[in-house]
């Protein structure tokens, strides 16, 4: 601003009209920048408000029972979000269980193990996985992965676990089509890997080489260097990266819609079809009217709040490391 006023006083002596246009333009440009930045806030606030207003009739009608109810009955206008919430959480948890070791392994490989000529192509491939659209993952899941998964995992596991207590409940599926909560979780795992791996790699690469070399110097193995030196150093931000992946997994829509089987009923088995909040919205919203539409928006509101909290915590954890 100081620069602006100096230009003004100089130009003031020369010609009056140019002064106005220059200061005016400066003020307009600043206002444009500020309002664009505010627009980002407005969009985020707008999403929250729109979700809340749109979902309000359902929240009012069903109260807290909306979160725990498991009916999804369009005939009698009875809606409960629990099966979708449970489906969302269980697919995300499965995605993390598979995706986190994969991502950390890739990050360790890229920063510690890979020779130079391997590093760049592998890193590029992992980044390109992030660019592949969600719908393509869905098609790969449905046409390639689902038949293989049904034949080589679901059928044998169902045969093995039939009638067993607990394990049989979780892993037995009556109709092993390959579609289900577990399949969706596995596809999601591949989709979140690039995001977690890329941040984890950056964090590992940021750790001063001296630390690593001194650990090797006193005779540590690579495992010990990773476990006792690198992970504690990068710890918090890697948890942030994982939560960022979780945020992605919770809201992912198209890939899940292809492979989860879209059942409104909640099954106790992870190999049975289910639904997530996002997949249910994608499937039903265009045909929904009145209370059903409101119930769908209300589940969207729940999804937004959960992902918002997860993403805020994730960004705080990642940012803490970057500030160091």
């Amino acid at each position: 601003m100081a620069a602006g006023s100096e230009a003004l006083s100089y130009a003031d002596r020369k010609s009056g009209s140019q002064v106005i246009s220059l200061t005016g333009r400066n003020a307009i440009f600043r206002a444009l920048c500020l309002s664009s930045a505010i627009l980002v806030l407005a969009v985020l606030a707008g999403i929250l408000i729109a979700m809340f207003i749109g979902g309000w009739p359902a929240f009012r009608e069903f109260g807290l029972g909306f979160f725990t109810g498991s009916a999804w009955d369009t005939q009698n206008d009875q809606y409960g979000a629990w099966p979708a919430i449970a489906g969302t959480l269980s697919t995300a948890v499965i995605a993390l269980i598979i995706g986190v070791p994969l991502s950390l392994g890739i990050a360790v490989f890229l920063t510690q193990l890979a020779p130079g000529w391997v590093r760049t192509p592998v890193a590029t491939a992992v980044e390109l996985l992030a660019a592949v659209p969600s719908i393509i993952y869905g098609m790969w899941g449905l046409f390639v992965f689902v038949p293989l998964f049904a034949r080589f995992f679901q059928v044998p596991v169902s045969n093995l676990t039939e009638g067993l207590p607990i394990v049989g409940t979780i892993l037995y599926s009556r109709s092993p089509t390959g579609l289900g909560v577990a399949t969706a979780g596995i596809i999601l795992a591949f989709m979140i890997v690039p995001f977690i791996a890329s941040i984890a790699r950056d964090m590992l690469a940021q750790i001063p080489t001296v630390l690593r070399e001194s650990a090797y110097g006193i005779g540590c193995t690579t495992w010990e260097v990773v476990r006792y030196v690198l992970l504690p150093q990068a710890g918090v931000s890697i948890i942030g990266a994982i939560m960022l992946g979780l945020g992605r997994a919770l809201g992912e829509t198209m890939a899940v819609t292809f492979v989860i089987g879209n059942a409104n009923r909640l099954s106790s088995s992870i190999l049975d079809p289910g639904s997530t909040i996002a997949s249910r919205i994608a499937n039903e919203f265009n045909e929904a009217l009145g209370l059903q539409m409101s119930a769908l928006i209300a589940t969207g509101c729940i999804l937004f709040l959960v992902t918002f909290v997860v993403l805020v915590v994730a960004r705080l954890l990642v940012a803490r490391m970057k500030a160091l």
């Binding site: 999403i47 829509t253 999804l303 937004f304 918002f308 993403l311």
Partner: peptide
Amino acid sequence: VLLSAPSILIGL
């Protein structure tokens, strides 16, 4: 945060 917000909610 908006960068990673679920895209289906933006549609809604």
